[in-house]
């Protein structure tokens, strides 16, 4: 294995594009090193991104949006008061990843690009409408985070492409988000179901909403119909029940050792209701 420390994203993309064997980018390494150890992947080229300027930065732009570097670890994002106030749901998603030790390294980027349908930070990123800036051998493009995962372990990034940063839209007034997951244990476990809700209010009514679910399909999925069920409402019990019914009807989970498909279907609706309520309270400023 060759270890590379490029100083620019263009160089990183070039190394990846020129590679003839298996490549991996190294952000926090908490997925890659485990996979190497298990013999699941044996990279020929390991491209460490942590020497590229800006990868550890969390910046609020003039328009209120946020730019998050690709090597920002969970502990760093969780320590940023401004970002935590705007997007507590994204922060709680990333902070659910592993232990304190894993938090010292694990990133949003790795969580997304590893491609697990149960990745804890991805639903809230998608619900927030986050955009990935992608650099490749043929230039740069912007891709909605929702369009990055295409299947378990698979992304829409092509050979030589990598993510250089994320932009998360301005929070604006009266907005809130939340992420909840179900796990048998409180710590160090993988989501049986995960659900993120991001919404904005106009007075007491939901003006806009996005609902994203993890671990219930081959990728994290967006549920537009579920969001439609709460838009225009005050999140009254009836609206919540309608949303839960839509969510449970739309998920396509598998049965495995963590839970049966029936259990996941039921829990998906329950979590969607709870996450929506938390997001609503946060948007109201009551939580």
């Amino acid at each position: 294995m060759k270890y590379h420390c490029p100083k620019t994203f263009a160089d990183a993309a070039q190394i990846a594009a020129d590679a003839t064997g298996v490549i991996r980018y190294l952000a926090g390494g908490t997925d890659v090193l485990v996979q190497m150890r298990a013999g699941m992947v044996t990279p020929d080229d390991m491209i460490d991104l942590k020497h590229i300027p800006g990868v550890k930065e969390i910046v609020q732009n003039a328009d209120g949006s946020w730019t998050i570097g690709v090597a920002v670890a969970g502990a760093e994002l969780g320590a940023h008061a401004g970002f935590c106030a705007d997007y507590p749901g994204i922060v709680e998603g990333l902070e659910l990843v592993g232990s304190t030790q894993v938090q010292g390294r694990a990133t949003l980027t790795g969580n997304l690009c590893n491609g697990s349908p149960a990745a804890d930070s991805v639903p809230a990123m998608i619900a927030a409408g986050a955009v990935a800036h992608v650099v490749g051998p043929n230039g740069a493009r912007d891709v909605a985070v929702a369009d990055i995962p295409v299947g378990p372990g698979k992304t829409s990034l092509t050979k030589g492409e990598l993510i250089s940063a994320f932009t998360i839209p301005a929070r604006g007034a009266q907005g809130g988000d939340a992420y909840l997951r179900f796990t048998p244990r409180t710590e160090m476990d993988i989501a049986v179901v995960g659900c993120a809700v991001n919404l904005t209010l106009d007075g007491d009514r939901v003006a806009s909403a996005r609902v994203a679910m993890g671990a219930v399909a081959p990728t994290v999925i967006v549920m537009d119909q579920a969001a439609d069920a709460i838009i225009g409402t005050t999140l009254d019990p009836q609206a919540l029940d309608t949303m839960a019914t839509i969510v449970s009807g739309a998920v396509k989970p598998i049965s495995d050792k963590r839970g049966t498909a029936e259990f996941r279907t039921d829990i998906a609706g329950v979590l969607a209701k709870r996450a929506a309520k938390i997001a609503y309270d946060r948007a109201k400023g009551t939580k």
Binding site: Y3, L26, G28, G29, T30, L33, V34, R37, A38, M46, D48, K50, A73, A75, G98, S99, T100, Q101, V102, G104, R105, M188
Partner: peptide, 27 residues
Amino acid sequence: CSTGDCGACSVTVDGTLVCSCLMLGVE
């Protein structure tokens, strides 16, 4: 374990607690 689960390999790197089994020596 060498897979980040047990914490027996805990060290700090620039003050941050990490699993030394989840970081390359070259880093």
